[in-house]
Amino acid sequence: MAELAPKTAGWRSHGRTRRSTRTVRVRTSAVVVAAVLLAVLVVPPLANLDQQAVDLSMKLRPPSLAHPFGTDDVGRDLLLRCVYGLRVSLLVGLVAALAATIIGTAVGAAAAAFGGWTDRVVMRLVDTFSSVPHLLLGIFVVAMFRPGVWPVIVSVALTHWLSTARIVRSEVLSLRSRPYIDAAVSGGASRWRVAVRHLLPGVLPQAGLAAVLMVPHAMWHESALSFLGLGLPTHQASLGNLVQSARGSLLAGDWWPTLFPGLLLIVPTLAIAGLAGAWRERINPRRRSELML
């Protein structure tokens, strides 16, 4: 039989020299995300400044060298406030997206694994919750707690696992009917082994992608809740709170307290969505990338 072994010495793997799909958008997104992470992680411990320091003699100054983003209505430095705000918003976004993905993956995988009535009941529940606007449901959840970071995270996580559950369920159903699962069953693999060894690794890329796409979404929800005065306590800098407290001064013609937090909300979320979009194109080239904010 040995002489039938194919001669493949000249064959080379294409894995390393894969063509570059990095467009301008991906590069810009990567730079922005890196800058945001750097700012958020490095500035607060390094700049030994108090973001809450009030200086009433300096209130509502336009951007200058000393205060590049200007100051707010009690004279706090807006650049520092924005960095702290971005930090809180990003943290809420990341934790909420992670929690929502874990819940969604567990529910979706369980629905697909058990099938039958469990599947039907769970997915109809998912449909029911999906039919209510996220924000409304989120407000309902935060209204039950005192303002703080955790209620916002819980609220966003509890309203955002639905789409992940759908994605994971359909992915598991599609994987489960493939012949290689049949082969594993025939090879003596237990249910648990089939799930952990064959199904989970197949689902993880999709679930991970859903998690990243959800980060901007969660950040916007945090800001929306804070803007409505239902999210984080008003003294805590978050992008939503900053925009909310700047409303009054905007009417007086002071544009900077609204513009900079607004930009810091829009630009990083677009950058994260841009990176996730590129990732999605790589996983599934057939699907056109679109912003899913």
Binding site: R178, P179, Y180, A183, V185, S186, G187, G188, S190
Partner: peptide, 27 residues
């Protein structure tokens, strides 16, 4: 059948399918 069959019975039968691409875990 499938997981409801005892492991000894399942593994007593070896199976080869038509399409090797689909019957091999890509990872």
């Amino acid at each position: 059948w499938r997981h409801r069959a005892p492991r000894g019975q399942r593994t007593a039968i070896g199976v080869v399918f038509q399409q090797p691409r689909l019957s091999a875990d890509p990872r």
